[in-house]
Nucleic acid binder design. Structure first.
Lengths: 215, 215
DNA sequence: ACGTGTGAACCGATTCACAGCA
DNA sequence: TGCTGTGAATCGGTTCACACGT
């Protein structure tokens, strides 16, 4: 049992954590296809990861496999869920209900991961008191209070870029410690807050480069 | 003038290209605020990149600055657009018009980058001949032909995971060389095809880890 | 003097090679 | 024997330090 996440001495990277999330999803699919035991070699065929990387990533949090045998799929799912902290439902907030925010709400792709957008805030008053898919849209002036009262920790910023930093400041003041940021700007936040930037335009533009320059 | 993208000897990474795209967007905002000349030190304040990284990234494609002075914003924008190949309009295709695909179409966040989703394919016949926002939704059986005929090079896969690989195969056969993949599986494609995976659930799950484990 | 451009040094993540255990 | 778990080696990307041009 090796716990590297001891204060000041974490040897695993952000990528390790993202991969754990990916492993988890694939393990669930493997479980659903009726497989109980799997080796790192077998699972690597479903993944953009080598068998060693899979084992190494897991080794940061303990050894969950049996030498000479492999991994118990069901147990590994439970362990990774526990490591990530996704073994309970997460209620998260979203700020900004423009085109992007509306699209994200409609997409609703997080609910099957036990992540639910339950609070949505927007500055436009005509959306206030509006209800979309059972979610009450509240005015941004209530944001701080609602987030504080309900101890929300994770928020999605889907506001226009020019108000994103201000929004982030408010969210941090309200107790948010994780931000999924869709605004194409660099958010300045305190050390205890994590920001993950999603930028599909950058992905597409780099794709255009590689898809047309390769030979 | 240094061209490292000579066959078999490219020294820059995928990250370099993604950063160029990010630089481009920020340079445009800087231009719009009326600034003509900027140093790498100044621009780095808008970015998650150091001044050296900015200069290094550019140096792979040539020296665009003036020593002792800085960079001409307008010229740099033109140069980066030319490097990425985004100095013309890109017509791209989308396959799969479920919740995610519909959300992406509604979001329409690519059009301001000169990237337009002009062909949408779906297997459901009741969506066929349908028109959304001026885009004709075609049945997937026409996909190969339409993509070939119009020389489309980039496609978005927003199908369910179980048909994503098959879709990718068809797309590659039709001449696609770049895929933005939203399906949470590993696509197997030939070497000349680039795949960029977008997985917001992974982002959120890793965010939950860091946002709750940090202290 | 000032800021760019870049080989060299550094550092962190991945991969290797093998010890350890069922 | 087979596959996991992991210190050591390797590799690649970032940062340093400084030469160069204006």
């Amino acid at each position: 049992m090796n716990l590297n996440n001891i204060k000041g001495k974490k040897t695993f990277s952000t990528e390790t954590i993202k991969r754990l999330s990916l492993y988890l999803r694939n393990l669930k699919r493997i479980r659903d296809s009726g497989i109980n035991i799997i080796s790192s070699d077998q699972i690597s065929q479903f993944l953009e990861a080598t068998p060693v990387q899979f084992r190494k990533d897991l080794s940061y949090f303990g050894g969950f496999g049996k030498r000479g045998v492999g991994y118990n799929v069901e147990r590994l799912i439970k362990e990774i869920e526990s490591i990530l902290g996704v073994n309970k439902e997460w209620k998260i907030a979203m700020v900004g209900l423009g085109k992007l925010g509306t699209a994200l709400l409609g997409f609703d792709g997080f609910s099957k991961f036990n992540i639910k957008i339950v609070y949505v805030f927007d500055s436009s008053t005509d959306k206030t008191e509006n209800v979309k898919k059972g979610i009450k849209i509240e005015h941004i002036s209530n944001m701080k209070e609602v987030i504080k009262k309900n101890s929300i920790k994770i928020a999605i910023i889907s506001t226009p870029p020019d108000v994103a930093q201000h929004t982030a400041n408010e969210l941090v003041a309200a107790g948010i410690t994780g931000v999924l940021n869709f605004a194409p700007i660099l958010l300045k936040v305190p050390d205890h807050v994590s920001v993950s930037n999603v930028d599909m335009a950058c992905e597409l533009e780099s794709l255009i480069f590689f898809a047309t320059k390769k030979n």
